[in-house]
């Protein structure tokens, strides 16, 4: 289990699951969770590359910390807009938000 390929594979899997989820999910919360999965895939990549290829300095770990912080800010903004969507449209299903077309 101690090889770079394992981690890269795991990260790619998480990332693909995330992309699949974004297209598959109809609920905004579900889409948000899928996006978090994609970010986590990138975080694992950074950690793995850091651990196996470029151990010094610990840039990868710093990146992961930043990604976590920024993802939290993103979730806060996304949830606040989702609350606004729910108040205006009465649902957080993306199919209800189809006014704009053309």
């Amino acid at each position: 289990m101690n090889s770079l390929t394992t981690y890269l594979f795991l990260a790619a899997l998480l990332f693909s699951l995330g992309i699949f989820g974004v297209f598959q999910r109809r609920s905004l919360i579900g889409m948000l969770i899928a996006i978090e999965l994609m970010l986590n895939g990138a975080s694992i990549n950074f950690m793995a590359f850091n651990r196996f290829l470029a151990p010094d300095p610990i840039v990868g770990q710093i990146y992961t910390l930043f990604i976590m912080g920024i993802a939290a800010a993103e979730a806060a903004i996304a949830l606040s807009i989702i609350v606004a969507v729910f108040r205006r449209l009465g649902s957080i299903n993306i199919e209800r938000a189809q006014e704009l077309r053309g």
Partner: peptide, 12 residues
């Protein structure tokens, strides 16, 4: 309501 719809699409 079109503003929040545009907002959530932009964000996603």
């Amino acid at each position: 309501g079109i503003d929040v719809e545009a907002g959530i699409k932009y964000l996603m």
